[in-house]
Structure formats: structure tokens, C-alpha cells
């Protein structure tokens, strides 16, 4: 019975969220799109980092690949935009699969460094690649006509899919394998877990979501530049969102993303100080609540939630 009524609330929540663009103003819609995109990417990043022990500092690879693929396919090859988004997702997943071979053989901090370096190499390649505009960037003119009332939905869908993916993954056989790898990779391997296949599957799924986030982001922002499309600041932001809220929980990034987007807008007015202020607040949160905001709330209210909530 408890389960049933829980689903009812989820349905109500989704109904409110899907109808939101019909009655909220333009600015809030913009903020919500950012909120959903960061949420979607941070959910999978947090799951990978906390449960599977895969701490990637290179997820910007997929933001950039998603953005560039979507823009190039629909502008230069005349492929419909929605199809370009889907193809970019598949391409991102494929790239993640390829990168798994060299990168996932590295562990812990070496994997993190490896992913970051891979992102730098790809950024340099795009900076010199005239076809995609090289260092001048790429303007995605075809996306000018797409209003935020439309972009809102793929962003919302990505966030919902990401949350469900994390939930299902956690409770799946693969999730068990990943959690054992995150805890002790050697022992897991000794118990029959094919650690490479498990980690690669997780990395590919997370990167698929991240690529789609990059694709939707470029339709929203209509401009690509190698230094920002492949910037480490993407992954740092996902990390912040996950960590502020509570890394490895599902609710945590929801709170984290809301705070992150709100901070971004609030502090942009304090000219020149915004970076500093944001950094200080995040630092303060992390010192006061090292487990993240959500973990603190759920402990205070004694919710006794079952992971990964």
C-alpha cells in the first residue's frame, strides 16, 4: 500500500512538472532547463563516483561531443534535430566504450587524471578542426527558432530518465557488481565480477546521459566553443551539484542542482566577486555538512531512507 501511494505522488509531481512551462514565466523556464540538465548529469556522475568508485574528471568530453555532433549533423548534414540528438547520444556512448579500454584499466586517481587528459586532447583537436569552426567556435543557427517551452521537455525527460536509471541501476545485478567494485575491486573480481565489463557499462550509460545533456544544452545555448564545450568546469559543476546535495543519493543532486542554479543567478550581480562568493558558500556547506545537504536533512528528520534515496 505504501508503495502504491508513493507512485501517486511521483505521478502528481511529474504532472506538475510537465505542465509547468504552460504557466511559469520565461526566466523560470530557463532556470528550470539548467536545473534539469545539471541534475541529469550530476545524478549519473554521483552514482559512478560514489557507488562504482569511477571518479571521472572528463565528463566534459561528452558535453562537447553531444553539442558538436548535434549542431554539425543538423546544420551540415540536414538531419532533423531530434534525430541528431539521438545519434549524438549513441556516438557519445560509443566513444565512452572506446575510451574504456585505455582508461578503465587505470584506477582511482589515475583514472581521474586519465579522463581529464583525454578531455584536453579532444579539446585541442576541436580547437584546430576547421570543419567545426576550430577556435572561432560554432554558431548553431538552426536552433534559434526553438523556444524554451519546447527545450524544457527534453531537459525534464533527461532528468527523469537519469533519476530512474540511477534507481534501477542501483537495484540491478549490475548495480550490485558496481557497488562491490566501488568497495574493493580485487575482492569483487575474486568473487566472479567481470570488473571491466561492469565499469565500462556504467561509464557508457553515464556518458550517454551526459552526451544528451550536451546535445540539449547546445540547442538551448546555440553556441559552441572548444574551450567551454570541453571545459573541466562542466565536470566540476556536476561534482559540486552532487557533493553539495549528497553524493551517491538520488535526492541530493536535486537539492544540489537547485542550489547551484540559484547561486549562479544570485551571485552574477556581484560583479567580479561571483566566483569567489560561490566558492565560499560551497566551501561553507561542505565544511558544515560534509555528507551534503540532503544527508543532513534526512538524518535530522530521521527518515531512515533506503539507499540510494
Amino acid at each position: 500500500m505504501e508503495l502504491k501511494s508513493r507512485y501517486i505522488y511521483i505521478v502528481i509531481l511529474l504532472a506538475v512538472l510537465t505542465s509547468l512551462p504552460l504557466w511559469v514565466g520565461g526566466f523560470l523556464r530557463d532556470a528550470l532547463i539548467l536545473f534539469f540538465l545539471y541534475l541529469a548529469a550530476a545524478e549519473v556522475w554521483g552514482f559512478m563516483a560514489k557507488h562504482a568508485g569511477i571518479v571521472s574528471l572528463g565528463q566534459q568530453i561528452f558535453i562537447g561531443v553531444g553539442g558538436y555532433t548535434t549542431a554539425v549533423l543538423s546544420m551540415y548534414f540536414g538531419i532533423p534535430m531530434y534525430a541528431s540528438v539521438i545519434i549524438s547520444g549513441l556516438l557519445g556512448a560509443g566513444l565512452a566504450g572506446l575510451l574504456s579500454f585505455p582508461l578503465l584499466r587505470l584506477r582511482g586517481v589515475y583514472f581521474a587524471i586519465g579522463t581529464f587528459l583525454a578531455a584536453e586532447v579532444i579539446r585541442l583537436a576541436f580547437s584546430g578542426w576547421e570543419f567545426v569552426g576550430a577556435g572561432k567556435g560554432l554558431i548553431f543557427r538552426d536552433a534559434y527558432g526553438i523556444p524554451t517551452t519546447i527545450i524544457y521537455y527534453p531537459a525534464l525527460a533527461l532528468a527523469v530518465i537519469s533519476i530512474f536509471l540511477v534507481y534501477l541501476l542501483y537495484h540491478s545485478k549490475l548495480g550490485f557488481g558496481l557497488r562491490s567494485i566501488g568497495a574493493d575491486e580485487d575482492v569483487a573480481c575474486g568473487l566472479g565480477v567481470n570488473t571491466f565489463v561492469c565499469k565500462a557499462t556504467c561509464f557508457i550509460l553515464a556518458s550517454l546521459i551526459t552526451t544528451l545533456v550536451g546535445a540539449v544544452n547546445v540547442i538551448h545555448h546555440t553556441y559552441l566553443h572548444p574551450t567551454s564545450a570541453f571545459s573541466i568546469s562542466w565536470t566540476v559543476n556536476f561534482l559540486f551539484v552532487a557533493v553539495i546535495g549528497g553524493v551517491g543519493t538520488i535526492v541530493g543532486p536535486i537539492i544540489g542542482s537547485a542550489l547551484f542554479v540559484a547561486f549562479g543567478y544570485l551571485f552574477a550581480q556581484y560583479l567580479g566577486l561571483s566566483l569567489l562568493l560561490e566558492g565560499l558558500i560551497v566551501l561553507a556547506i561542505l565544511i558544515a555538512l560534509p555528507q551534503g545537504v540532503w544527508s543532513a536533512i534526512s538524518r535530522k528528520l530521521k527518515l531512515n531512507l533506503k539507499p540510494p534515496l
Binding site: 514565466g25 520565461g26 526566466f27 523556464r29 530557463d30 532556470a31 539548467l34 567556435g137 524554451t148 544544452n217 538551448h220 545555448h221 546555440t222 553556441y223 566553443h225 574551450t227 567551454s228 564545450a229 571545459s231 568546469s233 549562479g264 543567478y265 552574477a268 550581480q269 560583479l271 567580479g272 561571483s274 566566483l275
Partner: peptide
């Protein structure tokens, strides 16, 4: 109304949209 883009093209787009919509 001046806003800091932090020299980041993606943030510049976000901030421009915010100035327009908000």
C-alpha cells in the same frame, strides 16, 4: 545591467538569456 560571464562562452549564453527573460 552588467553581469560577469567569467570569460566562459557557455556562461555568457546563460547570462544573456537571463538578462532577456528575467
Amino acid at each position: 545591467i552588467i553581469r560577469d560571464t567569467k570569460s566562459d562562452p557557455d556562461l555568457a549564453a546563460t547570462i544573456a538569456a537571463e538578462l532577456i527573460t528575467k
